[in-house]
Simulated assay, not measured.
Amino acid sequence: MTSPFILIMSLFYLGLLGILINRLHFLSVLLCLELLLISLFLGLIMWSLSSGSPFLLSNNLILLTLSACEASAGLSLMVALSRTHSSDLVKNINILQQ
């Protein structure tokens, strides 16, 4: 494996580790999810450039679009959470009790 692929894999695992360890605030979880998506996007770009397939390049655009939709949905959830629970702490989210 080349060094860019190792860097992309380490970014992906860093995002997973951030989700597993740093779950105090909802914003930090969203940022770790964005790191996961960016590393997937970069990995698909590197893979499509190394294989020379034009079909994989169109998949990258779809992934980037879905990433933007996920970011907007996550931010709207964070705004709704902060308005209803007056904080963005993940431990305050308990929908089943209501």
Rank of each mutant, 00 (worst) to 15 (best):
L17F: 06
T65L: 14
S72T: 15
V29W: 15
S28Q: 12
I62V: 13
L61P: 04
L75A: 04
S50D: 15
I38N: 14
H25P: 01
L16A: 04
L63G: 01
G43Q: 03
L63V: 06
S53C: 11
A73K: 09
A68E: 05
C32Y: 05
M1C: 09
L16H: 08
L66D: 03
I6R: 04
L14S: 09
F12Q: 15
Q98F: 09
L57C: 11
I21N: 00
L63S: 01
S50H: 07
S50W: 02
L89F: 15
V90C: 08
Q97A: 12
F12C: 07
S72Q: 00
L61I: 10
L17E: 02
N92D: 15
E34I: 01
S82V: 11
A71W: 02
I8A: 00
L44Q: 01
Y13N: 14
N92V: 04
G74Y: 07
L61E: 03
P54M: 10
V79P: 05
L24W: 11
L30R: 00
I19T: 00
N94K: 15
L17W: 02
F12I: 08
I8E: 02
L33A: 00
I62G: 02
N60H: 10
I62T: 04
E70L: 14
L7A: 06
T2K: 07
N92K: 13
C32S: 02
L57G: 08
Y13F: 13
V29L: 08
E70S: 14
I6V: 11
P54F: 06
N92F: 08
D88W: 13
N60I: 11
L24R: 14
M1K: 05
P54Q: 10
L27D: 02
V79W: 12
L77R: 11
T65S: 11
G43V: 01
Q97W: 06
I6L: 10
I45V: 05
L63W: 03
L44D: 03
L31V: 07
L37A: 11
R83H: 14
T84E: 11
M1Y: 06
L75I: 07
S3D: 09
H25A: 03
L66P: 00
L16D: 02
S67R: 03
V29C: 01
H25F: 14
A71Q: 00
S82E: 15
S76H: 07
A68C: 12
R23W: 12
F26I: 00
N94H: 13
S28D: 02
T84Y: 09
M46A: 07
I6D: 06
N22C: 13
N60T: 09
L40Q: 12
S50P: 03
L56D: 14
L89I: 10
Y13H: 12
L96G: 07
E34L: 04
I19A: 00
I8L: 07
L31P: 00
L77H: 10
G18S: 03
L35D: 12
S28R: 08
G74L: 05
I62C: 04
L14Q: 05
S76K: 13
P54V: 10
M78N: 06
K91P: 12
